[in-house]
Amino acid sequence: MSNLIPTNSGVDNSKDSKLNTFTSLSSWMDDLFSRNLGNEFMSNFNTGMTLPAVNIKNSNDEFIVEMAVPGLKKSDFDINLDEKVLTISAETQNQNEEEHQNFTRREFGYSSFKRTFTLPETVETEKINAKYHDGILEVHLPKREEAKKKPPKTIKIS
């Protein structure tokens, strides 16, 4: 068994000894409060959905925003464009109730997330589309014609 706070076997009244004890106590307090206290308690509660991971692909013709959000339906998503800000959000609610002769059990949960992206001027906003398949949401952001990378042009000398 280890001590939480190191103790000195002998008594030393020097300033260095008091400083070391204070530093050890300070480190112990930092360790105590930097731990995730209560995770065991909170693991039994629905604390909401975390922000989903996002990949952004950049091809010659478009940007593709991929978001891993399994377990949702297409109707759970809300995708909006306001000026040059793309907002992707989802909200789900579920409720389960069981009634038996001597007891009633009722569980409910709520999850949501919201991600926003500022689009570059090169996106053709009128042609944005989205699809959801196998837990992956894809938002296709086509580039304007003038923004597409053109192949190198060889110039002949006359």
Rank of each mutant, 00 (worst) to 15 (best):
G71V: 05
L32T: 13
E91R: 15
N36K: 11
S59R: 05
N96V: 11
N39L: 15
G109K: 11
M67P: 06
A90Q: 06
P52L: 00
S111A: 14
Y110C: 10
Q95M: 14
Q101N: 13
T47L: 12
E91C: 14
L86E: 04
T104L: 04
F45S: 12
F77S: 03
R35I: 09
R106F: 04
E66Y: 02
D76A: 08
T92E: 09
H100K: 15
D61H: 10
I88T: 00
E62P: 00
K74W: 00
V69W: 00
Q101L: 06
P52T: 00
N60Q: 05
L72E: 01
E98L: 10
S111F: 06
G38Q: 07
E40M: 14
E83A: 10
F108N: 09
Q93R: 10
P70I: 00
Q95V: 12
S59M: 04
D82E: 12
T104Q: 03
E66I: 03
E107K: 11
N44H: 15
T47C: 13
L32A: 09
N44V: 11
Q101G: 06
L81I: 01
K73V: 05
N55Q: 12
V85C: 06
V85F: 04
D61A: 09
S111D: 08
G109D: 01
L37V: 11
L72D: 00
K73P: 02
M42L: 12
H100V: 08
F45P: 02
S75F: 01
E98R: 14
N36W: 10
S112L: 09
H100Y: 14
N44A: 14
D76F: 01
K57I: 04
K57T: 09
K84F: 08
F77W: 05
Q93M: 13
N80F: 08
K57N: 10
Q101F: 08
Y110N: 10
K74F: 04
N44I: 03
Y110L: 12
E97Q: 09
D76H: 01
T50M: 12
V54S: 04
T50Q: 09
G71S: 01
E83Y: 07
K84P: 13
L37N: 15
R105M: 08
L37F: 14
T87Q: 03
V69L: 03
N36H: 12
T104A: 07
F33S: 14
G38E: 11
A53E: 10
A68C: 10
P70V: 02
M49F: 06
I56H: 07
N39R: 15
F33Q: 13
S111T: 07
E107P: 07
T50L: 13
N80G: 08
S34C: 12
Q95G: 15
Q95C: 13
V85L: 12
N94L: 06
E98Q: 11
T92N: 01
V69Y: 00
D82C: 12
S89K: 07
I88E: 01
I56P: 01
I88Y: 03
L37D: 13
L86G: 05
M67I: 03
M49T: 04
T104Y: 03
S112D: 09
P70M: 02
D61Q: 09
S59D: 02
L86T: 02
T87L: 06
T50P: 10
Q95T: 15
V65Y: 04
F45C: 11
S112Y: 13
G109N: 06
F63E: 06
G48H: 05
H100S: 15
K57F: 14
K57G: 09
G71K: 00
D61P: 05
Y110P: 12
E91A: 14
